[in-house]
Design a protein around this nucleic acid. Structure first.
Lengths: 214, 214
DNA sequence: TAATTTAATGACCCGAGAGTCATTAAATTA
DNA sequence: TAATTTAATGACTCTCGGGTCATTAAATTA
C-alpha cells in the first residue's frame, strides 16, 4: 500500500542514443507529427523533461535521428569500391551486400521511409539527406556502371537514369517493409527479392551478343 | 472604404470533388497530420465549416481522398490485359503506358507517397489500398509474367517476387517525385526512366539463348 | 556525513488546430 | 414579393501535445 520508491538512475552517457533509437522507431511507425515526445521518452525509459535535456526540441530530435548512422556505412562502401578488382557486376553485388548487412538488416532500415514521408516538411534535412546519402550512393553505382560500360561488360545507356532504375527496387524494399508491407498476408523473402533483382540486372545490363540495340 | 460584399455562391454539386482535389494536394505535400483543414477549405475556395458539410471529419476526408480515382484505371488495365494479343512483353508495355497516362501524369500520382507515409496511422485504409490497388496491379503483372514463361518468351523465376521487383521502380518514380525529388538539382526525365526500365526488363526477363541459368 | 552539483522528474502553461453551431444569405417555392 | 429552405460562414470551444521550470534526489566533493 506504500508508494513504490522512484529510483531514478543517472546515465548521462547512454541517454542520447537510447532516445534516438526510440525516436526512430516511433517516427517511422507513426510519422513525425503523429509521434508524441512523451511516448518517445517513455520508450527510452525516461521522462519527457529528460528528453529536453538532450535535444532542444522536436525538430532537433528529428534531425539527429536522420543523421545518425549513415556516414560510416557510406564511407565503408566507398572503400569497397576503391579497392575492388574484378567485374563491375561483382562490384554492384558487393555494394548491395554491404548495404543489406549494415542498413537493410538494422534499425536504420526505417530511415528511407521516414525521409520520404517528411521531406516536404523539413527541406533542409531533405537537402542534407540528398547531398550526403542519396548522391554519394548514386555516385557509387554510377562509377560501377561507367566502368562496366568502358570495359564492354555492360551495354551503353544513360548512366544517370540507369542509376535511378537500379536503386529504386533497393530503396523500395525498405519503404515497403515499413508501410504497406505490414498488410501483405504473405510477406516475401527480402534476400530472394534482392537476388532476383541482381539476376535481372546481370542479364539486363549485359552487352548481349545477338540482340539488337534500341 | 465600405466592406466588400460577401458573395457566397452555392454549388452543392461541385464541392466534394474540389475539396478532395485540394485535400490530396495538401496531404501529399505536408502529410496528413501537418495539413490544416482550414487550408484545405481555403484552397477549395470555401470556409472550414463548409468542409464539414461534406465530410464528417478529417479521417473521413482522408479515406475519400485515397479511394478517389483508382478503381476505374485498374478496371481499364484489366480490360487491356484481357483483350491483348501479342507478346507478353508488349502487354507489360501497354499496361505501363496506360498507368503512366492515367495516373503518373495526373494529380493521382501523389497517392502512393501519401499511402506510404500514412499506412501506419490508418491500417484500415492501408488494408483497403493493398487489396484493391496493389493486389490487382500485382495480379496484372503476374498474369503477363506467367504467360510469357509458359510461352517461352521469359525465363523462369519466382513470379511473386519478380512482380515486386518489376513494380518497384514504377512506384518509386512517383514516390520520389513527391518527396526527395524536389531537392535534386537536375531532375530526370520520367519517360526516359520508364524506357530504360523497360529496356532492362526486355533483356533481363528474356530466355537467353547462351547464358547459363542460375 | 554535510554540502554541493546536476541528472531527472512531472505538474503546469499555452498555442494550434479539430470540430461545433448560431447566424447569414442565396436559391426556391407559394 | 413574402415565406421557406438550406448552403455557407466564421467566431467559438475544447482537447491534445510541445515546451518550461520549480522541485527532487542521485552522485560527488569537502
Amino acid at each position: 500500500m506504500s508508494a513504490p520508491p522512484p529510483l531514478r538512475k543517472r546515465r548521462k552517457e547512454a541517454r542520447p542514443s537510447e532516445l534516438l533509437a526510440a525516436a526512430l522507431d516511433l517516427f517511422v511507425e507513426k510519422g513525425y507529427a503523429a509521434t508524441r515526445l512523451e511516448d518517445v521518452a517513455k520508450q527510452a525509459g525516461v521522462s519527457k523533461g529528460t528528453l529536453y535535456l538532450y535535444y532542444a526540441n522536436k525538430e532537433a530530435l528529428f534531425k539527429a535521428v536522420i543523421q545518425e548512422g549513415i556516414v560510416p556505412v557510406l564511407a565503408e562502401n566507398e572503400l569497397i569500391a576503391a579497392q575492388h578488382t574484378g567485374s563491375s557486376f561483382e562490384l554492384l553485388g558487393k555494394l548491395l551486400d554491404n548495404w543489406w548487412n549494415k542498413i537493410g538488416q538494422t534499425r536504420l532500415a526505417g530511415i528511407p521511409k521516414l525521409m520520404v514521408a517528411e521531406a516536404g516538411n523539413f527541406p533542409d534535412v531533405a537537402q542534407f539527406y540528398y547531398e550526403n546519402v542519396i548522391n554519394r550512393g548514386r555516385a557509387l553505382v554510377g562509377t560501377a556502371l561507367e566502368r562496366g560500360m568502358v570495359s564492354g561488360e555492360f551495354r551503353r545507356s544513360d548512366v544517370e537514369t540507369t542509376i535511378d532504375v537500379i536503386i529504386a527496387p533497393i530503396l523500395m524494399l525498405l519503404i515497403w517493409r515499413y508501410s504497406i508491407g505490414c498488410f501483405q498476408e504473405h510477406e516475401g523473402d527480402p534476400e530472394q527479392y534482392l537476388r532476383i533483382h541482381m539476376n535481372l540486372l546481370r542479364q539486363g545490363l549485359s552487352k548481349s551478343t545477338e540482340e539488337s540495340q534500341v
